[in-house]
Nucleic acid binder design. Structure first.
Length: 235
DNA sequence: GCAAAGATTTGCT
DNA sequence: GCAAATCTTTGCC
């Protein structure tokens, strides 16, 4: 049977092309995450493309290791890693199998299941700061506007309860607990010729040129959920 | 076996 | 605007 309207699985072949092309295809697409409080749906509004072993800003630059093994899988595979000891980042593997290209999902708008997402953020914040001011943190998260719930890679992972356990998951599988679905009908980002903002990738100061400056960070210029600093270039 | 850095977020100055 | 929090992975001894 076919999926309900508006929840068509994301076509894997849209991820098989060059890094920036795959990244662009993911803008406007949605992530659906099954949580105890109900399903959370998030519209992707900011992404970063990473190449394969040749991209000196990519985790794949050092070749396959225990941590980045999922990057060398098929397009559509989830690659989740921990950063700075306290956050997780969600990537979608792209390109040909073994190419080790991926797209970092940096921000999304929660379009359904806001309360479940807020609860997940709350739980992550409380766990990460259990030795600090957990009550103040809780109050802060409760007061966050919806647009701030997934405005940044660490926040997005927290809001969708994404951690290393999901690495290797096939995000194109309609039955997966975290999955990709196509953009909603009429989504501005899915329209032909839609303009997107572009700029250099964030937090890769260790990389040499041209990787340092290449405009592989793409975002919805109209979304308040895009993380800062907002990319100012045009693609 | 040890030291350093990191695809981040938050709070304080 | 800057530094802390926190811990896994990586690189070098």
């Amino acid at each position: 049977m076919s999926p309900p309207p508006g929840t068509a699985p994301f076509p894997r072949d849209r991820l098989a092309g060059p890094p920036a092309e795959a990244a662009r295809a993911l803008l406007g697409a949605r992530l659906v995450r099954d949580l105890p409080g109900g399903p959370v749906e998030a519209r992707i509004v900011e992404v970063e493309a990473y190449g394969g072993r040749d991209d000196l800003a990519s985790h794949a630059r050092i070749g396959p290791t225990a941590r980045n093994a999922a990057m060398f899988g098929a397009p559509g595979t989830a690659y989740v890693y921990r950063v700075y000891g306290m956050y997780h980042c969600l990537n979608v593997v792209t390109g040909a199998p073994g190419q080790a290209a991926a797209v970092l999902v940096r921000a999304a708008e929660i379009t359904a299941g806001e309360e479940a997402a807020r609860t997940a953020r709350l739980r992550a914040a409380t766990a990460a700061r259990r030795r600090l001011d957990a009550t103040g943190e809780a109050a802060r998260v409760r007061g966050l506007p919806p647009a701030a719930l997934a405005a940044g890679p660490g926040r997005l992972a927290a809001a969708l309860d994404v951690d290393g356990a999901l690495t290797g998951l096939d995000l194109c599988d309609p039955a997966a607990p975290l999955r990709l679905v196509r953009a909603a009908a009429g989504d501005p980002l899915a329209l032909p010729g839609a303009r997107v903002a572009a700029g250099p990738r964030v937090g890769i100061g260790y990389a040499p040129e041209p990787w340092l400056s290449i405009a592989w960070r793409l975002a919805d210029p109209a979304s308040p959920a895009v993380s800062r600093p907002r990319p100012r270039g045009e693609a």
